[in-house]
Write a protein that binds this DNA or RNA. Structure first.
Length: 672
DNA sequence: CGGGGCCTGT
DNA sequence: ACAGGCC
């Protein structure tokens, strides 16, 4: 979703050339000895995950009819990303709408300015990864780093000499057969772990993506983009200099942005090799000692930076850009509109913001996206408390007043002004109550009681224990079961203790719900218990299970990485509920049968999902809301009123199932 | 060149 | 506090 995506993509041809050339020069026999000037300890195993055209995938899940058409996600007049059907027709990321329509007149556009759905799905991915191991760092909405060193070591300890190792997926600069996994046992195990995680992301969330396996974040990120889409690649130490040498320019090095690339160019440095060979002194004079060292290391493929668990966000903001805003009236209206949505999000988060910031961008012919200015101020504690307690009505108006003061600090309204962007932001977020601390990781971000990063860290020890259990399970190929503490249900906070219970319950034979009819192994017992009896029966009938199995075998994800196919079919047998798969018509089946994460909306059993998906979005929406009302409410999420008469977010967002805690699948059907 | 969110330096 | 830079 960001620049890097687009640019990595442009490299695809480069990668291939690089692959061919180096493979010829460096045949399969290369020894395991580290080549090049890599001094790094290289004992970490780092994964990088990158979802394929993330926004487009989310929209295709929400409306499966979009799967087969060229789809572009539009923000303002830009296509920020598009599905692969559209790419085949020449549409690229960050292409203007006019250019894209010219290239592909049939292009279907979905507005993507409201990030709500992307944000929610993004955090579900992170949560899912957190269920494997606590060291997960987010990078934007569609990328995650993981440090799985400990998982790898634990698995390695159990491997006997006679066990043969293999790589899952691609190996950079090697053909599949020639890489000897026994020379790289940790990376090999890392590649299996990555494959399992990608499997889980597919089977539980219905998303595909790429993964890179390497010894640091830089290399993992670089290598994850070398085979796309929906594939994974491991980088051996002996190929580090190859992958760095392949980069077409310094801008391709993660960590080198526009500005630093320009400054480096001023020093005569354009290629990665230039930077590698540049005397440190010269570099330090221009950029300072520490960044000089860091940049040179990056050029060498060295990156000691740790995977820092991201936790709940440090700030929440909302912004809008536009061609022209010149009057105070307009400005205040826009601020009020933005605040309406932001206050609601802040309320759901549960933490109390201490600081408010207003940011603007003034029009300027040169450098249009430069020059943001901001002013910030403390939030009166009364206002902050009201955000938390849910008195949204007048907090918005008080904050509008505050924003107005900040605005006048920046803009002299007696003179003409011309703004192109307004941003409102809450920061300095504080959890209330000692009880909230240490409980739950990012889950709390959805479930209402978010905790700040620092207190979260203290829970890592617990999570680590969980991860150990998890790891044992993984060895037994029980992945999907244990890791399914994901969708937060109702108000319940998924804290670490609970996770451990889940792990144990699912890792041991059965569990949980023995007093009643036992749910099938993969159905959330809590949800199952609340289902009508006939549905319970249906879920338990052999016919049902059979049909799901056959369904699954016919509906695999588009999988280019053939090495994973065997793995998937094996998993299907163990986990007929790979049924959590949400794609195409299947999502309807799911909704109809047992509602994995939604409890207050039922999809009638007599409706043909395929027919339904062909209906116009409006009709779908209406039908869904009718059914919703007719059906018994299984579990009430804390439904709260959405901002009443206030200006709602541009594209008429009404009440609906907006509560992120309800995780109502309904929202996946909501027309864009 | 969208909508976020992070970190660093002064 | 605020700007700048990263993705």
């Amino acid at each position: 979703m960001d620049n890097s995506d687009g640019e990595v993509e442009e490299d695809e041809t480069e990668w291939k050339t690089c692959f061919v050339d180096s493979a010829a020069v460096c045949p399969a026999t290369s020894p395991a000895a580290a080549s090049g000037p890599v001094i790094e300890s290289a004992h970490r195993i780092i994964l990088h995950f990158d979802l394929d055209c993330f926004y487009a995938q989310v929209e295709m899940i929400r409306n499966p009819a979009l799967r087969d058409v060229p789809l572009g996600i539009q923000q303002k007049y830009i296509i920020v990303t598009c599905n692969y059907v559209a790419r085949e027709r020449g549409v690229t990321k960050l292409m203007s709408v006019t250019d894209a329509k010219e290239k592909c007149p049939e292009l279907v556009l979905v507005k993507g300015e409201d990030l709500t759905h992307y944000r929610e799905m993004s955090y579900q991915v992170t949560e899912l990864l957190l269920s494997f191991c606590p060291l997960v760092e987010r990078l934007g909405f569609d990328e995650n780093f993981m440090d799985v060193t400990e998982m790898v070591e634990r698995r390695l300890a159990r491997i006997s000499e006679s066990d043969s190792l293999s790589f899952k997926g691609n190996v950079f600069n090697h053909s599949s057969a020639d890489a000897n996994a026994s020379h790289h046992p940790r990376l090999a195990i890392g590649s299996h772990i990555a494959a399992e995680m990608r499997d889980a992301i597919w089977s539980k969330l219905g998303l595909t993506g790429c993964a890179g396996v390497a010894t640091n974040k830089l290399l993992a990120k670089l290598v994850s983009g070398t085979f796309k889409p929906n594939q994974q690649t491991v980088l051996l130490q002996e190929n580090v200099s190859d992958i760095m040498g392949c980069l077409s320019g310094l801008r391709k090095v993660p960590g080198v942005g526009h500005q630093t690339a320009k400054r480096l160019q001023a020093l005569g440095l354009v290629s990665v090799k230039d930077l590698q060979l540049c005397p440190l002194g010269d570099l330090a004079r221009e950029l300072g000692g520490t960044t000089a060292q860091r940049l040179r290391n990056l050029a060498l493929g060295i990156d000691e930076s740790a995977v820092t668990p991201t936790g709940a966000p440090q700030s929440l903001s909302d912004e809008d850009s536009f061609r022209k805003m010149c009057s105070v009236k307009e400005v205040m209206a826009k601020i009020q509109e933005l605040l309406g949505g932001l206050v609601e999000r802040m309320h759901k988060d549960g933490r109390q913001p201490q600081t408010f910031r207003l940011t603007i961008r003034r029009f300027s012919a040169t450098n249009k996206w430069f020059s943001r200015e901001s002013r910030q101020a403390p939030i009166p504690s009364g206002v902050g408390q009201k955000i938390v307690s849910g008195n949204i009505e007048d907090t918005v108006s008080q904050l509008v007043l505050l924003a107005g003061k900040l605005f006048h600090k920046m803009v002299d309204c007696s003179a003409a002004f011309h703004l192109t962007l307004i941003n409102v932001c809450f920061s300095n977020l504080q959890s209330r109550g000692p009880a909230a601390s240490g409980k739950g990781a990012i889950t709390s971000f959805f479930t209402h009681n978010a905790s700040p990063r620092k207190t979260q860290i203290s829970s890592i020890q617990n999570q680590n224990n969980s991860a150990q259990n998890a790891d044992s399970c993984l060895l037994d190929h029980q992945i999907s079961e244990f890791s399914r503490n994901v969708p937060p249900k109702g108000q319940m906070t998924c804290n670490s203790e609970q996770s451990e219970e889940n792990y144990e319950a699912s890792c041991s034979t059965e569990g949980i719900n023995s007093d009643k009819t036992k749910p099938p192994p993969h159905v959330d017992p809590e949800v199952f218990r609340l289902l009508p009896e006939e549905i319970q029966k249906e879920l338990l009938s052999p016919d049902y299970l059979n049909s799901l199995q056959s369904y699954m075998s016919k509906h695999e994800p588009p999988e280019n990485d053939s090495s994973m196919k065997a793995d998937r079919s094996r998993m299907n047998h163990q986990q007929p509920a790979g049924m959590r798969v949400i794609n195409e018509e299947n999502v309807m089946e799911q909704e109809k049968l047992w509602l994995p994460r939604s409890s207050d909306c039922n999809f009638p059993g007599n409706v043909d999902p395929e027919v339904f998906s062909e209906l116009p979005p409006d009709v779908q929406k209406e039908l869904m809301s009718e059914w919703k009302q007719q059906n018994p409410v299984l579990k009430t999420p804390s439904s709260r009123k959405t901002g009443k008469g206030s200006i709602s977010k541009g594209k008429d967002r009404k009440a609906e199932g907006r509560s992120s805690q309800s995780n109502n699948l309904l929202k996946y059907f909501k027309p864009g």
